[in-house]
Amino acid sequence: MKLLLTLLLWVNLAGTPDLATIRKLYTGVTKSESNAKEFSEKLSDISNSDDKTLVAYKAASILLDSKFEKKMKNKMDRFKEGAKLLESTIKSEPNNIEIRLIRLSIQENVPPITGYKKNIKEDKKYLTDHYSAQNATLKEYLKDFILQSKSFSEKEKQFVK
């Protein structure tokens, strides 16, 4: 019985991707369709009851997948699905800085026609206001994002250097 329980626990944990891997994949996800597909596959088993940061990355994967849809209706449906999931995740954890970073990274890169650029200033302010309170690993991840972000001016980027 112990062996069965251990095996079930191992299988369950093995199916959930670790955050470090997901972060690493996310940084290169826009470089190619194959990167986007790999990212999406890693997150395919994530459900709304999982860690909210992983759920936010899954929402980002859906938003990114919409870019590769051939039919406009499918593209729009996937985009709306991803945006809705990301917004509900933020609503459930509004103080999660990494989820805010994910939304900011999406919103600064979507076309204006989507109408999904409304939280850039809010998320940018949240990142700058709460950056110093993060652990070293998350600070480094935030810093890497901020330094390449189009939303931050050169002067604003100085606070992370």
Rank of each mutant, 00 (worst) to 15 (best):
T128H: 00
L101T: 04
L86Y: 04
K75Y: 07
A59H: 05
K52Y: 05
I120V: 13
E41P: 02
S34P: 03
L63D: 11
S153N: 14
N35K: 02
N74S: 13
F68M: 05
D18V: 14
P94N: 14
K75R: 15
K84Q: 13
S105F: 02
D123L: 01
Q134K: 06
K37A: 03
Y126I: 01
F159C: 08
R23E: 09
K155A: 15
L25V: 02
D144G: 09
P17G: 06
N109V: 11
K157R: 13
K42L: 07
A136D: 13
L54Y: 08
L7W: 08
S105E: 00
Y141T: 07
D45P: 01
T128P: 00
E154W: 15
D51T: 07
D77V: 10
F152E: 06
K73F: 05
D129P: 05
L142C: 03
A14D: 06
A83D: 13
K125Q: 15
A60T: 02
V110H: 03
T128K: 01
A56F: 04
K67N: 05
S49H: 14
V11Y: 12
I97N: 01
R23N: 06
K84M: 11
I97V: 11
K139I: 01
I62K: 09
K42G: 03
T114Q: 05
G115C: 09
F79I: 10
T114S: 07
D18Y: 10
K37D: 02
L63G: 14
G115A: 06
A14F: 14
L8F: 13
K58D: 12
K73A: 11
K73M: 07
I113C: 06
Q134N: 04
K124F: 06
R103M: 08
D77W: 01
L147Y: 06
S44M: 13
A83W: 05
S44K: 15
S88F: 05
R100V: 01
V29H: 08
E81S: 14
D18K: 10
F68D: 12
K67F: 04
I106Q: 08
L5Q: 15
T30L: 10
G115E: 05
S32P: 11
K121C: 00
I90Y: 04
E108L: 11
Y126Q: 09
K117A: 09
D77H: 07
K139W: 01
F79C: 07
P17A: 07
L25Y: 01
V29Q: 11
V11F: 00
R100I: 00
